[in-house]
Design a protein around this nucleic acid. Structure first.
Length: 474
DNA sequence: TCACCTTTGAAGGTC
DNA sequence: GACCTTCAAAGGTGA
């Protein structure tokens, strides 16, 4: 399988990415999850039913010989079969584009990726970005917009602001005006509440809770979150909901760089000099190409500071300040009331902000697809949803998976640039070898007797004959 | 209130 | 190198 890194020397990507598909033979996976929801669910349902049948059969020794192969292989085979069958049904003509119409990566390693192995933009890509930026320059009135767009394009090539999409450009231009487009968007219906949308990156959602939504201007139509009831700002239709144009997108925040600037009533991120706060503080600093580009293209006062912002104590949204969650009140209060400032300083130093791990490909996929699965299925239990997502993940074509691997690779790259000294071990509670919590004690390959779909079936009433859960169609 | 469940992948440690 | 462990997201569930 294609090495995503393409031998480009980038060791950030996992070498074994997509290798699992080798085990699946040469299946012609022309099916994507973009197949109709019904068909997709039917496939999932079929797989789950087969699995359940397998489990049922496993209880009978007399049928042991007729039992399908081990579960994992069984699933893969079944998955392949179901895929092939589905491919036939679809007559090969229903392949719709990837969920990111504007996605510029054609997953040919190092041929189209605008990033050099070292993570910086290649000259060609940079040129493209600049050119596209020029195009947008005519469309936007303010230079602030230009900075925002350029930065978005550089950091998140998925963002369809440069795809020449008149719709997207119009959407951006009219971001302040109400548009129902996001409602009818055919994209993955992950219209997350800003509270759940990472403000920095389209896909990583390190610490969404830092960005509680502000009150939208009265003139804006409030897209009310059905769950929370909190109004959401309209979202540009062609922009993946993961992209943080905003909690508040453009329209909600007066400042054109509002997505970079703390919203009112959000003291989490202190505003630095000039009020500029960047969600990925060092991203602009680290990326020399972008930095020089900004410096040369915009007046100094428009260019974000180049010094190490993140070292100044400005938390990245990936950072979950311990004081917010766990170690909060007690020690803080103690430090406040303590006359020993030095001790409190030491304590504060010990309280290193929790920098979350960058999301891997599957996590990125889950974040995108979860809402869709939840919408299609009555299930809301994450364990069950994750099982479905896991199956869908395996059902994805290589190309589609490659997108997420590529995204994950870039996220890791960016994360590593932002936090050079960070290690995944930093997040280990109690250090390696000391379990934070007890998880399931099962042998590799062993599954719990009560899988999530089974739980679902048990909960909603399993049709034992069909082994089918009516309410969720699984 | 919080661990658990459940998924895959990445990372780090151990042997 | 193989194997193991932990964590990343998510939200319902149960202790």
């Amino acid at each position: 399988m294609p090495q995503l890194n393409g031998g480009g020397g980038d060791d950030l990507g996992a070498n074994d990415e997509l290798i699992s598909f080798k085990d699946e033979g040469e299946q012609e996976e022309k099916i994507s999850e973009n197949s109709s929801a019904e068909r997709d669910l039917a496939d999932v349902k079929s797989s789950l039913v087969n699995e359940s049948e397998t489990n049922q059969n496993s209880s009978s020794d007399s049928e042991a010989e007729r039992r399908p192969p081990p579960r994992s292989e069984s699933f893969r085979d079944k998955s392949r079969e179901s895929l092939e069958e589905a491919a036939k049904r679809q007559d090969g003509g229903l392949f719709k584009g990837p969920p990111y119409p504007g996605y510029p990566f054609i997953m040919i390693p190092d041929l189209t990726s605008p990033y050099l192995p070292n993570g910086s933009l290649s000259p060609t890509a940079r040129t493209l970005h600049i050119q596209s930026g020029s195009t947008h320059y005519s469309a936007y009135k303010t230079i602030e917009h230009q900075i925002a767009i350029q930065y978005l394009q550089m950091k998140w090539p998925l963002l369809d602001v440069q795809a020449g999409s008149l719709q997207s450009r119009q959407a951006l231009k009219d971001a302040r005006s109400p548009s129902p487009a996001h409602i009818v968007s055919n994209k993955v219906p992950v219209v997350q509440h800003p509270h759940h949308v990472h403000p920095l990156t389209p896909l990583i959602t390190y610490s969404n809770e830092h960005f509680t939504p502000g009150n939208p201007p009265p003139h804006l139509p409030a897209d009310v979150d059905p769950k929370t009831g909190i109004p959401r700002p309209p979202h540009p239709p062609d922009i993946s909901p993961y992209y943080p144009l905003s909690p508040g997108t453009v329209g909600q925040i007066p400042h054109p760089l509002g997505w970079l600037v703390p919203q009112q009533g959000q003291p989490v991120y202190p505003i630095t000099t000039g009020g500029f706060r960047h969600p990925y503080p060092t991203a602009l600093t680290v990326n020399a190409s972008m930095s020089s580009f900004l410096s040369s293209r915009f007046p100094p006062h428009m260019v974000p500071p180049h010094h190490t912002l993140h070292t100044t104590g400005i938390p990245h949204p990936a950072i979950v300040t311990p004081t917010v969650k766990q170690e909060s009140s007690q020690s803080d209060v103690a430090s406040l009331h303590s006359s020993k400032h030095q001790d409190s300083k030491k304590e504060e130093e010990k309280k290193k902000p929790h920098i979350k791990k960058p999301l891997n490909a599957f996590m990125l996929y889950m974040k995108e697809m979860r809402a869709k699965v939840v919408a299609e299925c009555t299930l809301k239990e994450s364990a069950a949803i994750n099982q479905i997502l896991g199956r869908r993940w395996h059902a994805l074509s290589r190309e589609e998976q490659a997108k997420y691997y590529e995204l994950a690779r870039k996220e890791r790259q960016l994360h590593m640039q932002l936090y050079p000294g960070w290690s995944a071990r930093d997040n280990y509670v109690g250090g390696y070898g000391k379990k934070k919590k007890r998880k399931r004690d099962k042998q590799p390959g062993e599954t719990n007797d009560l899988s999530a779909p089974k739980k679902c079936r048990a909960r909603f009433g399993l049709d034992q004959q069909n082994n089918w859960c009516g309410p969720c169609s699984l």
